[in-house]
């Protein structure tokens, strides 16, 4: 285990951590906005999967990863309308709607994938490449870890700051938080609660799709049905463990990413422990985190409660 903490291997470990964490940052920050608006949308896993499969089909057909990213995000915006309809218009149980959407997404992606490849070898594509930032990438340790990543990774560093700014420093952010805490107050002022929730769900889904598409386009060359493998659920865990505060959520995500990176490297170094033990670490850690960090002080009061006038 100790050899993991030496020079080049440590740098590789930390770089892997950043690589694994960043797609999740997009999804987590989107889901945070949705949840702050009082919508308990557990369909992150399914939405990421839709983002990934759409990105895969577009990228392997057209060869353009940027177009693939854009269409994947649009597809997820469209799929968010299902969630909005069921939870805001019909006011069905939000958890159940999310569960249904997850099941639908895993079914539809499997079907699309099988129909798309239709018995041939799954086509591959060329995704996003690394773009080292000049000068910054030459800094020892920090350079290779932070500044020799993909373009979208650098963007992802900014996302939590932007979302924090939106939520706590803008009028619209205040309204979103108000929808999650006290929707009646907003309604009394004549502001439309459902519209804001609908937009929050759409933003969350687009960001989840962004994360899924980035995972697909940045780190892989062909789709596999278990590509997301529970990462959408880890995002939901990170939000609870991070007590609905942007930067704590980032911390939780980096913990999961570090454990996953550790697993990959332990396999490379050849530590004589079954590799599944390392693969399971993030999920075990999430249980420990949730049991340990029990503070729910920033959980939106109206989270998961459909808003009814009257």
């Amino acid at each position: 285990m100790l050899e993991l903490l030496q020079g080049p291997l440590l740098i590789s470990l930390l770089a892997a951590m950043v690589r694994i964490a960043t797609p999740l940052l997009f999804s987590a920050m989107g889901e945070l906005v949705t949840q702050r608006a009082g919508i308990w949308n557990i369909a992150v896993e399914g939405t990421m999967l839709i983002g990934a499969i759409v990105a895969y089909m577009v990228a392997s057909t057209t060869g353009s990863p940027w177009l693939a990213l854009a269409i994947a995000i649009l597809a997820c915006a469209a799929s968010s309308l299902i969630m909005s309809f069921v939870t805001i218009v019909l006011k069905a149980e939000q958890f159940v709607a999310g569960l249904a959407l997850n099941l639908l997404a895993s079914g539809v992606t499997l079907f699309w994938f099988q129909a798309y490849i239709g018995g041939r070898e799954a086509p591959t594509f060329i995704g996003f490449d690394q773009v080292p930032i000049p000068y910054l990438s030459d800094i020892p340790i920090l350079g290779p870890v932070l500044f020799s990543q993909r373009l979208l990774t650098y963007v992802s560093f900014l996302v939590p700051i932007l979302v924090w700014f939106f939520l706590y420093r803008t009028k619209y952010g205040l309204e979103v938080r108000c929808v999650g805490e006290n929707p009646k107050a907003l309604d009394v002022k004549g502001l439309h609660v459902g519209l804001r929730q609908c937009l929050a769900i759409m933003f969350g889904s687009m960001m989840s799709g962004f994360g899924g598409a980035f995972l697909m386009l940045g780190y892989s060359d062909k789709f596999v049905p278990d590509l997301i493998a529970g990462r959408g659920w880890l995002v939901v865990v990170a939000i609870i463990a991070g007590n609905w505060m942007p930067f704590r959520i980032v911390g939780a995500i980096f913990i999961f990413a570090f454990l996953e990176a550790l697993g990959i490297h332990a396999q490379v170094v050849g530590i004589p422990v079954p590799h599944q033990l390392f693969l399971v670490l993030p999920y075990v850690a999430s249980l420990v985190l949730l049991a340990g960090l029990r503070s729910r002080t920033h959980q939106p009061v109206a989270l998961g409660i459909p808003y009814n006038r009257e």
Binding site: A92, V96, A100, G107, V108, L110, F111, A115
Partner: peptide, 23 residues
């Protein structure tokens, strides 16, 4: 027809039933 159709149908049936239950 790919076998995945059945999983997709499961999700669709569930969503439609959820909406029907509200209706």
């Amino acid at each position: 027809t790919p076998a995945g159709l059945v999983s997709a149908m499961e999700g669709l049936v569930l969503l439609f039933f959820l909406s029907a239950a509200v209706a």
